[in-house]
Design a protein around this nucleic acid. Structure first.
Lengths: 195, 195
DNA sequence: AACTGAATAAATGAATCAATAATTCAAAAA
DNA sequence: TTTTTGAATTATTGATTCATTTATTCAGTT
């Protein structure tokens, strides 16, 4: 089986190339050059250009999710977890120029429709972070007893929408204000007593 | 100047034709036939195919907004107004098959980005309905003192997003549940005392 | 002012073809 | 046995042409 570190190296290089040129303009040869190998050898590690693209994105999205999960794990109060999640997950993209560039060139990565979500499993993982916080909050008596699944999906949809508004449609500061106001309103609606 | 009733007749016919064939496939002649006139005469009333299309949509969106405004006007309590607005504006499309069809074929009509909104003025009018309710609620002491502009934009964005999910991406029942849960959560966050 | 038919101008789609890029593979190197 | 290569093969893409359809204009009629 192929070396795992070489594979990771390839995915990192691919992300860089795709971020720069976009899926269409980037060639398999560009990626091969970036890791100093021939393109035929690249095919030893991946089965197609498309797969190379999707895997490199999957890799980046997973790192994002893991970094949010780590930030949440540092808090133990559900309300604090909620706040950290809202901020960290939203601000992450500001520091990842490559992923941002890919997202702008391929807006279909962030979709409002689960049915056409190419990264469904990863996003399910992200929703689980929300769901766990809601359940913890309800268990601890901090949150009212909402329908956890619908609320989770609602929150995730709002989150995706603001990522689109902020980083893809570039509404920047204005969207940030809305996001803050909106999440704090929802959190207040969620809490038994004023947070 | 052109007869206003003829103009309205043309816009209604245009909506029907565009709903059936979409902007690209529909011809100016199709619309002319629908109102029993020659296409050259149609140009006496409109200046281009594009304008005919946009005006017919603008007409339909305006009727939608007016019908929501009328429903809100029947209530005087801000909380009731909020609930009626949330339900009426969301359910309207279920009964308007033509507009729905156009929206599906031209998803750019509903955009998450004001900058690329071809129907900005109409949507500004819709946002005003929200803003007025918020201000009334705050004045009456029913709502907490939120940032009215940001909250208005937040609510409108959430509303548009759910229209997209429900009627364009066809998530139907599932999206409806999220919308209900989400709006009630926000309303709870907005109210001084549990509604 | 409201309308028409005929003329013109633009846009579209199908067909062709050369260039470019994706993918495969038999054989060599590590 | 795993990894790499160069050369060969397919598949896509983009540019170009051309016929057809459709949008738009306009001089003249009701």
């Amino acid at each position: 089986m192929p070396k795992p570190d070489k594979k990771q190296e390839i995915l990192t290089a691919a992300l860089k190339v795709f971020a720069r040129y976009g899926f269409k303009k980037a060639t398999v040869e560009d990626v091969a050059k970036e890791v100093s190998m021939t393109k035929s050898n690249l095919y030893f590690y991946v089965s197609s250009k498309r797969e190379l693209y999707e895997q490199s994105i999957r890799d980046a999205l997973t790192k994002w999710r893991d970094s949010v999960a780590a930030a949440i794990a540092e808090k133990d109060n559900a309300i604090e977890k909620f706040k950290v999640m809202a901020v960290k997950s939203y601000e992450y993209l500001a520091d990842d120029e490559q992923l941002r560039s890919i997202l702008i060139q391929d807006p279909g990565i962030f979709t409002l429709s689960p049915a056409e979500d190419r990264f469904y499993e990863i996003n399910q993982g992200a929703m689980l972070l929300i769901k766990d916080i809601l359940e913890q909050g309800i268990d601890e008596g901090l949150f009212i007893e909402v329908d956890v699944d619908h609320t989770t999906e609602f929150l995730f949809s709002v989150y995706i929408m603001f990522l689109i508004k902020t980083y893809i449609k570039s509404e920047g500061v204005s969207a940030f204000g809305m996001y803050e106001q909106g999440t704090s309103l929802v959190l207040r609606g969620l809490c038994r007593t004023d947070p």
